[in-house]
Design a protein around this nucleic acid. Structure first.
Length: 708
RNA sequence: GGGCGAUUAGCUCAGUUGGUUAGAGCAACCCGUUUACACCGGGUAGGCCGGGGGUUCGAGUCCUCCAUCGCCCACCA
């Protein structure tokens, strides 16, 4: 027996050494596996962590699960490939960096864009290196030789090609449309980058000529020269579409026009409203239907424009009550409901109120792409774990609107579009990777929504269209990621995968829930309850953390991360260590081929049955069950029953029984280690060194297949 | 407003898709230290499986209604 077993298991000293051995073995790269060419591929694309900070508990969970899937399949004999990556994370990283600038008393708006880009790039690359070390610490057996960064030149080129091709196919268009504008970050955002928040706000009813109109936003009302009602509303039958009338309004009399439109709800308020098409999606649609003028009232910083007269330059929040007061003083206020419940959109990063603005931007036409994705799910080409997430997925795809993909930020992939005579009647637009021929072309300064590029990640990292990996490893097998990014990412990957390659990017979607704090509350910096997974690996070992993340965690369900639970699995790692000490001490020089007694044969069969069970659990993604079963076997069957029984046998005089039991202990322990390896790779690999009869690493040992 | 999910032991959760006396970990309580391991062993206690109704030979599991909690989506000003 190795002397190392005389001391308790020391994960801190063991783990980095073991990881280095794995990495140096070359087996993370499936091309180096024995008989690589004969193996069936099994592929996972890692959700590339944002290279803008430390890994959080959610990363630890996905790394654990994906590493487990990969190690299991590698041992089963697949050409197991796990492709790691790092995400420049466009807007997210820019927000992180802007906070840093703010702390330093600087601002992106007073910087040269080139300098800003260079600074964020340096920041990102530094974090990327840090992040990669943390992924290693968690035991990830991913193929670092294939690692991709979302800003790698080949990735960027292919992303741009997708855009150009989609433009040619009419799936990308430039349009003057309502976008979600964040006045703080000075960029538009997609619909899913905003949060709808219910708030209590005064609901005003004003006199507008002969009508009473309701609004929660008096500050937008300056340009309201259209008054809209439902065509079937009997109360207003005497008014005809197009009727003109003069009404007294905020800054004096204006010419108003009656518009009849079915978008108006007859039983809401008075059934009459005025519209502000520049700052409301629904109003914009009405204006478009009837060819009405649209006029900007609020600038991009959230301040009133000259049209507001005496209110020019005021912030909308301050202007709101002032304008209501003025209307009241003019006798135009009918009533105020002080506690009206209204849903407003806020920036998902800074909670600033989104100001709808009409802008010329790039959009993806979602309907045709969503159709394709839904059909692929209908054909069962993608299955979901948990199953019910398929409903959530469908519901979103059936209702999603066109996707604004242009961002007015520097940190990202620039949109390969070119303008000539921009903003004039003779404006020309071209999309191409290179500047078009001819004079006067100016490049678009906008960048892509980061999900436009990460949505193509599986096809990009496998080297579409010509890469060898694309032929061999696409479509991939499992996409394991957070339930919270099913729309941001999973839906887009399926759409882009189908669009560009004709195939779904993966056949299985495994969605994990949130990792919460010990009280099952969402972790957040402001609450101060954030748990750093690397602290837990330092304290209890990576294997213990992995077990703690996996056991009792069903897909799609949130997990409470408790230290006492992880501590329990640290004890388990040590238990395995002590089992090894006993087994190795007692079986020194044992004859592995000694015939088994009938009783021992039954014990062998018992484990075979368990392995069969655990294997089918793993294949069906019942990870939580598989982990618990093998844990329970090792501790409460192997250690508590078998070893105790063995002590009696070894103390007795039956030589055949002794020989049988020695061979049995070794064989059962070896298989227990094999099955435990995907869950607890470090301690099992370390013990394996003393158990193995060849010099093979446990990570490439054959998964035990039983005769049962 | 629409959708999804949860409700099982003190706590955190399983219960593999209807089949014996409902399980695990942690916590609690009692006993045990000439040892593979106190990062331990042996044992005990603890559950009208949220509530009502239904289907069935049989329901924690299926259907229905209700209650509570959580999450997601949302262009009625």
């Amino acid at each position: 027996m190795d002397d190392k077993f005389l001391k308790p298991y020391d994960p801190q000293a063991t783990e980095p050494r073991i990881y280095q051995e794995w990495e140096e073995s070359g087996y993370f790269n499936p091309d180096n596996l024995p008989d690589a060419e004969d193996r069936e591929p099994f592929t996972i694309v890692m959700p590339p962590p944002n290279a803008n900070g430390n890994l959080h508990a959610g990363h630890a969970l996905f790394i654990t699960l994906e590493d487990l899937f990969i190690r299991f399949r590698r041992m089963q004999g697949y050409r197991a490939l796990w492709i790691p990556g790092a995400d420049h994370a466009g807007f997210e990283t820019q927000v992180v960096y802007e906070k840093k600038l703010e702390k330093e008393g600087r601002s992106r708006f007073s910087m040269d864009p080139k300098d800003l880009y260079a600074e964020i790039l340096a920041f990102t690359l530094e974090n990327k290196a840090n992040m990669e070390q943390q992924v290693r610490a968690l035991g990830a057996s991913c193929d670092w030789s294939r690692e991709k960064f979302t800003l790698d030149p080949d990735i960027v080129t292919e992303v741009k090609k997708t855009f150009v091709q989609m433009h040619e196919d009419g799936l990308v268009y430039r349009g003057k449309r309502t976008v979600n504008w964040c006045p703080k970050h000075q960029t538009s955002l997609s619909d899913i980058e905003t949060d709808s928040v219910e708030e209590s706000t005064p609901f005003y009813t004003f006199k507008y000529g002969p009508f009473d109109i309701g609004t929660v936003r008096p500050e937008t009302k300056f340009g309201d020269k259209y008054v809209v009602m439902h065509p079937n509303d009997a109360r207003y039958a005497k008014w005809n579409h197009g009727d003109m009338l003069e009404v007294e309004w905020i800054n004096g009399p204006i010419q108003a026009t009656v518009i009849k439109d079915e978008a108006v709800e007859m039983d809401f308020g008075t059934g009459v409203m005025t519209i502000t098409p520049w700052h409301s999606q629904i109003d914009f649609e009405i204006a478009k239907r009837h060819g009405l003028d649209i006029e900007q009232i609020i600038d991009l910083r959230g301040k009133l424009l000259p049209i507001a007269g005496e209110f020019e330059g005021m912030k909308i929040a301050d202007a709101r009550t002032k304008i209501a007061e003025k209307l009241e003083s003019k006798g135009l206020l009918v009533s105020v409901d002080p506690d009206y419940k209204n849903v407003v959109k806020r920036c998902y990063k800074c909670s600033t109120m989104i100001e709808p603005q009409v802008q010329d931007q790039w959009f993806v036409s979602m309907k045709p792409l969503a159709e394709q994705a839904l059909q692929a799910v209908d054909r069962k080409e993608v299955r979901f774990f948990p199953e019910h997430e398929e409903k959530v997925f469908r519901h979103w795809l059936e209702n999603t609107l066109d996707w604004n993909i242009s961002r007015q930020i520097i940190w990202g992939i620039n949109i390969p579009a070119w303008f000539r005579n921009r903003g004039t009647d003779t404006e020309e637009i071209k999309t191409s990777l290179e500047k078009p021929d001819g004079e006067g072309w100016v490049a678009d300064t906008d960048t892509f929504d980061t999900w436009f590029s990460s949505g193509q990640w599986p096809l990009l990292v496998t080297g579409y269209p010509e890469g060898k990996d694309h032929a061999q490893h696409y479509p991939t097998d499992v996409m394991e990621t957070g339930r919270d990014i099913i729309f941001f990412w999973v839906a887009r990957m399926i759409m882009f995968g189908l669009y560009r390659t004709g195939s779904v990017p993966f056949h299985t979607v495994y969605l994990h829930g949130l990792v919460n704090d010990a009280n099952n509350k969402k972790m957040s910096k402001s609450k101060g309850n954030v748990i750093n997974p690397l602290d837990l690996t330092d304290k209890f070992g990576t294997d213990a953390l992995r077990m703690g993340l996996v056991i009792g965690n069903t897909p799609g369900t949130d997990l409470a991360l408790r230290e006492d639970k992880i501590k329990g699995y640290k004890n388990f790692a040590n238990k395995l260590w002590n089992i090894a000490r006993y087994v190795l001490t007692e079986t020194e020089g044992a004859d592995l081929s000694a015939p088994l007694t009938a009783a021992d044969e039954a014990l062998r069969t018992e484990l075979d049955a368990l392995i069969k069970d655990v294997t089918s659990d793993l294949e069906a993604y019942r990870i939580y069950l598989a982990a618990e079963k093998i844990y329970h076997y090792a501790w409460h069957t192997f250690a508590d029953v078998l070893i105790e029984e063995s002590k009696v046998i070894f103390a007795g005089g039956d030589a055949a029984a002794k020989a049988s039991r020695k061979a049995l202990l070794l064989s059962l322990f070896a298989d227990t280690l094999r099955v435990l390896h995907p869950f607890m790779p470090f301690v099992t690999e370390e013990i394996w060194k003393s158990v193995r009869t060849t010099d093979t690493l446990l990570m490439v040992e054959k998964w035990p297949s039983s005769a049962v």
